[in-house]
Nucleic acid binder design. Structure first.
Lengths: 185, 185
DNA sequence: ATAAACTTTCAGTAATTTCTGAAAGTTCAG
DNA sequence: CTGAACTTTCAGAAATTACTGAAAGTTTAT
C-alpha cells in the first residue's frame, strides 16, 4: 500500500510528535496511518508501509486498542484482522485526552488527597499541606472542566469557542439570571 | 536541608510523574522541592537533598527557568544564587500548560495548516485533506479554549466549574438572549 | 487431527535519554 | 590582577525505552 506524499508527511510528523503525546514514535505513525486511510488496514500492510517489524506492529496495535482509538474490523472472507479508527476525530481526541488524564493527573490527585488527610505534625508541615491543597484543588478544577467540555460535544464547544472572551460576560449574565445558585461549596 | 517525610513523599511522586508532564525525573523533583519550600533554595542544597550531581542540578534549574516556573532570588550578602517559584500555583500551572501547548500542539498545527494549503492532486488526497482539516480545527478549538480559561483566572474558572453541566444550559439561554451573534463562521 | 495463515510474546540488541564529574567559565572581594 | 566561591558545559557512562525476529500461540479450513 504505497502512501501518497501527503500521507507520508503527516504520518512522519505524528511519529515525531508521538512521544510528546504519550506514546512512542511507531505507535504515533500507526495511528496516523489508520486514521488517514479510508480502507481498513491489516497489520502486515502497516508493517510494510512503515518498514517496521511485524512484532513491533502487533505491540503498537495493542497499545492503540488499549487507548481505545482503533478497533478491529473483520472483512468477510479474509482471514486476517483489519484495523480502523474507533470513531470520529472528536471521539478519538476525547479518548486520548481521557487516557492522558488517567495517566498524568489521576495518580497525583490520589496522592495529594492522601497527603492532605494526615494531620500536620508541625507548623512547617501545615504550610506544605496548604500548598498541596491548592495544587489538588487546581487539578480537580481542570479535570472537572475537561470532562465538562467532552460532554458538551464538538458543536457546542464550537459555539462556546466563538464566544471567545465573551465567556466572562456570560458568567456575569448567569449571575443575574440564575441568582442564589452559586457559592455553595 | 533535611526534608520532612511529607515533602519527601511529594517530591518523589512529582519525580515519577515528571516524565509524563513533559520533563524528566530530576527536573520534576527539583520543581516540587522549590515549590514546597518557603525558603529560597541554593543549587547545592537541592543537589544534596535529592542526591544528584551538581551538574545535573544546574541543567534542571536551567530547564525550569526556560519553562518560566522558577526564578532566581538574590539574598543580600550571599554569593550564590537561590531559587523560588515564579508565582502562585495558578501561574505555575498556566506556564506548564502554555509550554506544553507550544511543544505538543503548535508544531502540529503549523504542519496541518501547510498540508491543507496545497491543492489536492487526487480524489484520495482530497479525502485525506478533509480529515486533516478536521484535526486542525479541533486542535485550534482546544488551543483557543485553553487560552480562554487561562485568561479567566482561578476564581472565575471556579465559578464556571461549579456551573458544571449547567454550561450547556447557559449556552442555550445565551442564544435566546443574545441572538444573531452566533454562526458567523 | 493436521496444516496453513495468521498473531502474540519475549529475550536480546539497538537507540535514546539522562546523569555524572571533571574541566572550563564567571563573578567578585581584596 | 589573583584566587576563592560559585556556575555551566559537555564527553562519556549508566539507565531507560523501543525494536527485531525467531519461537510459541491461535484460529480456521479441510
Amino acid at each position: 500500500m504505497n502512501m501518497s506524499p501527503l500521507i507520508t508527511t503527516a504520518v512522519m510528523h505524528f511519529g515525531e510528535m508521538g512521544s510528546r503525546w504519550g506514546f512512542n514514535r511507531t505507535v504515533g505513525q500507526i495511528f496516523a496511518l489508520i486514521v488517514l486511510n479510508d480502507e481498513p488496514l491489516s497489520a502486515q500492510e502497516i508493517a510494510d508501509a512503515l518498514s517496521i517489524s511485524r512484532g513491533n506492529t502487533s505491540m503498537g496495535l495493542k497499545e492503540l486498542q488499549s487507548w481505545q482509538v482503533i478497533k478491529q474490523h473483520h472483512v468477510p472472507g479474509e482471514r486476517k484482522e483489519f484495523f480502523v479508527p474507533a470513531g470520529s476525530i472528536w471521539v478519538l481526541a476525547n479518548r486520548v485526552f481521557e487516557e492522558r488524564r488517567k495517566r498524568e493527573i489521576d495518580p497525583t490527585l490520589t496522592l495529594l488527597r492522601d497527603l492532605i488527610l494526615d494531620s500536620p505534625s508541625s507548623k512547617q508541615e501545615q504550610v506544605v499541606q496548604e500548598r498541596l491543597h491548592e495544587i489538588h484543588d487546581l487539578l480537580e478544577s481542570v479535570t472537572a472542566w475537561s470532562q465538562e467540555l467532552q460532554n458538551l460535544g464538538p458543536e457546542k464547544l464550537d459555539t462556546l469557542m466563538k464566544l471567545g472572551a465573551g465567556v466572562g460576560r456570560i458568567l456575569e449574565l448567569k449571575d443575574k439570571l440564575l441568582p442564589g445558585k452559586s457559592q455553595e461549596k
